[in-house]
Design a protein around this nucleic acid. Sequence first.
DNA 1: TAAGTGTATTATATATATTAGTACACTAAA
DNA 2: TTTAGTGTACTAATATATATAATACACTTA
Lengths: 125, 125
Amino acid sequence: MITIDYQSKLPLYEQIADRFRTLILRGVLPPRQQMPSVRSLAVELSINPNTIQKAYAFLEQEGYIYPVRGRGNYVADVTALAEKSRQKLLAEAEQLILSGKEMGITRSEYISVIDRLYREGETDD
Amino acid sequence: MITIDYQSKLPLYEQIADRFRTLILRGVLPPRQQMPSVRSLAVELSINPNTIQKAYAFLEQEGYIYPVRGRGNYVADVTALAEKSRQKLLAEAEQLILSGKEMGITRSEYISVIDRLYREGETDD
DNA sequence: TAAGTGTATTATATATATTAGTACACTAAA
DNA sequence: TTTAGTGTACTAATATATATAATACACTTA
C-alpha cells in the first residue's frame, strides 16, 4: 500500500504523507478506517517510527486523520478536503497547460490527450 | 530577469537554473548570447558566486549553455532540448489530468480550461 | 599590464532529515 | 490485574544538503 522511493528528493515522511493523502482522497481508505499503527508501518517499511509519526502528525494537522488515545489513528471525513484538492489540481493543470502552450504544444494535442484518457466507456460529462 | 524566492523550498541554485532553463527554452535568451558572469550575477542577486557557479554547472551539464575559457558562458542551441522538454510537459500534463479524473474532474472542465487558455485570437491548431 | 572571465579548492555554518533510545498515558483483551 | 498494543513526547546523535567565505589559477581582451 505504501512504498518508499529512495531515489526521490522528497523526504520519507513527505512521501508517506503524500501517499496516504491520495489513498484517502480517492476513498481507497474510507472514513473511520483504522490507519496502520506507527510501529507496525515502521517495521513494514524498515524505517524509524519517528518518521511515520511525523507523517501522521502532518496528516492529522491537515484533517486527513484523527487520533484516538490508546487505540490508533483513523481516517477522517474528507469531503471538504476533496473539493479543495480538486480545485488545486485544476489550478495546477491550468499552469502546466499554459507552460506547454508557450513551448508550442497545440490545443489539438491537449484535446487528444484528454479524449484518450476519458475514452473508457464512461459517461462523458 | 532572475529573481529569488526565499519562501520557496527549492535551493537557490535550482531556482536560478530553472529560471534560465525557461528563458532559454522560450528563446528569450537566444543561442550564442552571453550569460551574465558568475560574479556579476552574484552581486546582482546578493548571493555567493559559488551558488551561481553551481547553477551554471548544471545548465552546462544539461546542454543549455557552454563555457568559453576566459570569456564567459554562452547560450547553446537548444532545439533538441526544446523538443524533449515539450514531450516532458505533455507527459506531466497527462499524469495531472489523470489524477484529476480520479478526483472527479470532468472532461468538460478540462476542455473549458483549454479553450479559455487558447482563446486569444490565435490560430487554433 | 590590468581587468574581467571560468574553474577549483578548502573550510565553516546552518538547517533538515533520519535514526536511536527512552518514557508515559491510554485502551483492549487475556 | 496484567499484558500487549496504541499514540505521543523528548533528547541525542548522525548524515546530508545548502550556502557562505576566502583564495587561487589559467585564460581572454583591451
